[in-house]
Design a protein around this nucleic acid. Sequence first.
DNA 1: AATGAATGAGCCTTCATTCAT
DNA 2: TATGAATGAAGGCTCATTCAT
Lengths: 206, 206, 206, 206
Amino acid sequence: MNTDAGRSARVMDRAQAQRDRILCAAQRCFIEHGFHAASMANIADAVQMSVGLIYRYFENKNSIILAIIDRQLGEQRASIADLNTDPDLRRRIIELFAKWRHGDPTVMNPVLFLEMRAEATRDPQIAQALAEADRIAGADFHAWLRKAAEAQGRSPTQQDIEARAFALHCIIEGLAIRSLREPTLDAASLEATLDLLLPLLTFRDG
Amino acid sequence: MNTDAGRSARVMDRAQAQRDRILCAAQRCFIEHGFHAASMANIADAVQMSVGLIYRYFENKNSIILAIIDRQLGEQRASIADLNTDPDLRRRIIELFAKWRHGDPTVMNPVLFLEMRAEATRDPQIAQALAEADRIAGADFHAWLRKAAEAQGRSPTQQDIEARAFALHCIIEGLAIRSLREPTLDAASLEATLDLLLPLLTFRDG
Amino acid sequence: MNTDAGRSARVMDRAQAQRDRILCAAQRCFIEHGFHAASMANIADAVQMSVGLIYRYFENKNSIILAIIDRQLGEQRASIADLNTDPDLRRRIIELFAKWRHGDPTVMNPVLFLEMRAEATRDPQIAQALAEADRIAGADFHAWLRKAAEAQGRSPTQQDIEARAFALHCIIEGLAIRSLREPTLDAASLEATLDLLLPLLTFRDG
Amino acid sequence: MNTDAGRSARVMDRAQAQRDRILCAAQRCFIEHGFHAASMANIADAVQMSVGLIYRYFENKNSIILAIIDRQLGEQRASIADLNTDPDLRRRIIELFAKWRHGDPTVMNPVLFLEMRAEATRDPQIAQALAEADRIAGADFHAWLRKAAEAQGRSPTQQDIEARAFALHCIIEGLAIRSLREPTLDAASLEATLDLLLPLLTFRDG
DNA sequence: AATGAATGAGCCTTCATTCAT
DNA sequence: TATGAATGAAGGCTCATTCAT
C-alpha cells in the first residue's frame, strides 16, 4: 500500500491528528482564559508547536473557536444520544454532573458552553451551529421521551412530550451552570432533586 | 439652597448620574461585544464621552465590569425578592422570559449572565460576588417556597424545600439561556412547561 | 494707601505668594518623581489647589520647570555669594553637604541639579540659564579665591585662580552627587577630604 | 556546522545582536530625550524595528532602561579598571573628558550618568545597581592609589587613601558634568587643574 | 513540515491643557 | 478667584497574522 492514495490517506491522518492536538490544547486554553483572552501564543505553547504551524491547520483563531464549538456540540449530542443505549436517565445525569465538576474533557465543558452561548448572540455562524445542535438535541429528547412513555404504557400527546423535553433541556443546562458554582453541591441534594423531577418528566409519576 | 452642602449634594448627584450613564452604555457594549471584546473606546462612543473622562469615574475597565456585574446581581435579586409581593410565580416567570427576549434593561440580562458565570471561573473577585448572590437567591427561593407550602397547608421537610429551590433555580437559569435561542419559543410551549413543573415545585400537586 | 497702586501691589503680592506656593509644591513633586514623571495633578494635590488655578499663574508645566530651575540657580548662587560674608569654606561645605543629605529646601537640591543639567542638554532655554548661572558662580569663586589669596599674602596668577575655581566647582558638584548615595558617608571622611584639598585650593598650603 | 548546537548558537548570537542593536538605539534616544520622555516608538524608529519586536527582546521599557544603566556602569568600571594597565591618570582623564565632550559611545555617557543618578533616588533597583557600581569603583580607586603611593615609596594610612579616593571620585564625576557645559572648556584649563590636583591626590607632592 | 522573527493595528491608560461655571 | 469636568493625543504594551528560512 505505497500508492498515492495510501500516502494521501496517511497524510490526511497526520493532518487530522495535528488538528486534534491543536483543538485539545486550544480547548484547555479557552477554558482557562476564555475565547478572547486566550492568545494564539497560549495555544502554541499548550500544543508544543510554533504559532506559524497552527496556521497551516487552521485559517485563523476564529476557525479554531468554531472547531471547538463544533466539537462541544458533538459531545453534547453524543451525551444525549447515549440515552438511547442507556436509558437510566437519573444515573446518567448524576454521572454527567460529576464529569462537569471534574472537568472531564470527554463531555461538553460547562465554561465553553457559556462562552458559546454568549458568542452565538454575536456571531451568526455560531448561532446557526448552535441552533442546529439544539434542534437535534430536542429531537433526541423527544424520541427518548416517547420511548420512555411507551415503556410505561402511556400515550402522551405531542404537547406533553414537548413540554417535558423542553423542561429536561432547561434543567440539564441549568445543572451545567450549577456545576461551576463554588460551594460544592453534595450528591444527595442533586439526587433528591432528580428524584423529585424525573418521575414527572419521564411519565413515571402516578 | 446655595449652601456648600447643597452644592456638594448636587455634585455627588452629578457624579452618580455620570457613573450611571457610563454603566448603561457599558452594559450595551458588553452585551453587544462581550466583556473582553468591548473596548473602552466603544464605551466612550456609546456614552458620548471622551475615554479619559470615563477614568474619572471608574478606576479601570475591570472595575466597570465589576460594577455591571454587581448591578446585574442586584436586578437578579430584585426579581426574586419581588416574588414576596407578587406570589404568582407562573405569571412572573412568563413576564421575565418575555423581558429577557426583548432585552429589557430592567432585568438581569441573559448574555451578561453567561459572561459573568464564565468569567467567575477565572476571576476570584467575581466568583465571590456570584457566590454571595447565589446564597441570597437560594435563601429567597427557600423562604418563598416555605410560604407557598404553608399556604397549601403542607409542612414539607427541609430537604423537600431544598430540592424544589434547587430545581427552580436551575430551571430559571435554564430558561434564561433558552431566551437567547434563535428559533423563538412560542408562549404556549413555555406555559405548558410551567404548568407541568410548577404544581410539583410549589406543593400544589395532588 | 487705598490707591490703585496700593491695590495693585497687594494683588501682585498675593499673586507672587500663590506662585511661591505652587513652586514649593512643584519642587517637592519634581524631587519625588522627576520633571517628566510628575504630573500637574500631583502638583495640584501638593499645593491644595485646583489644576486650573495653577494655569492662572503659570502658562504651562514647562514654565513651572523653568521657574524651579531659576529658583535652584538662585539658591545655588546665594550659597556661593554667602562665602563673601562667611569665609570659612570648610565649614560651609560641611554644612551644605549636611543640608543636601537632609533635603533642606533652602539650598539647591541635588536631585533637581541632576535633572536640570540633563534637561539643559535638550532645552536651549534651560541651557542658557545654566550657562549664565555657571558664569556667575565662576566669577564668584574667582573673587572669593583672589581675596583668600590676598589674605594669605599671595599674588597668584589668573591661571592659578582659574584652575582652583574650576577644581572647587567640580568638587562641590561632585559632592552634591555623592550626597545622594545610599551608603552614608561619615562626617570624618568628608572632613578628611576637605582637609586634604582645601589648603591647596585656597592658597593655604606650604 | 549545521548541527542543532550550531544553529542554536547562531540563533542566540542573533538574539544577542538584536538586543545590542536595540540598546544602542535606546541609548541614543535616552540621551536625546531622557529616560521618561523617550518613547518606545522613538526607540523603534531609531532601531528600524517595529515596536512589537522590541518586546520580544525586552520585557518592557523599564528593563531596557536597566540594561542601559548596567551597560553604562560596565563602561564606567572598565574606564577605572583600565588605570591598572595604563597608570597615567592625567592623560587618561584628559582623554576621558574629550570623549565625554564628543559623545563617544564607548565610555559612560554623562547625560545618562545624570539621569541614572536622579532615577536612583526613586527606583530601588537602580539605586542598588549604582551602589554596587560605586562600591567597585571605590575599591578600584583604592587599589590604584595604594599602588601609586607605593611606587612613590610612600606608606599612606588607610584614611589618607580614602580621602584621596573620595576626592578623585568627586572630581571625575564633577568633570563629567562639566563636560556637558555649553561654553567649551579649553584643554589648557583642564590640564592646569589636573596639574594642580593630581600630584596631591597621587602622593607625588613634595 | 516547521519555525519564530517581524509587523502594525489596536487596546488600556495617563496627562497637559481648556473652559463653563 | 477658583474649580474640576472634559478632551484628545500620546504612551506602553499585546496579539493575530504573515513570511523568509
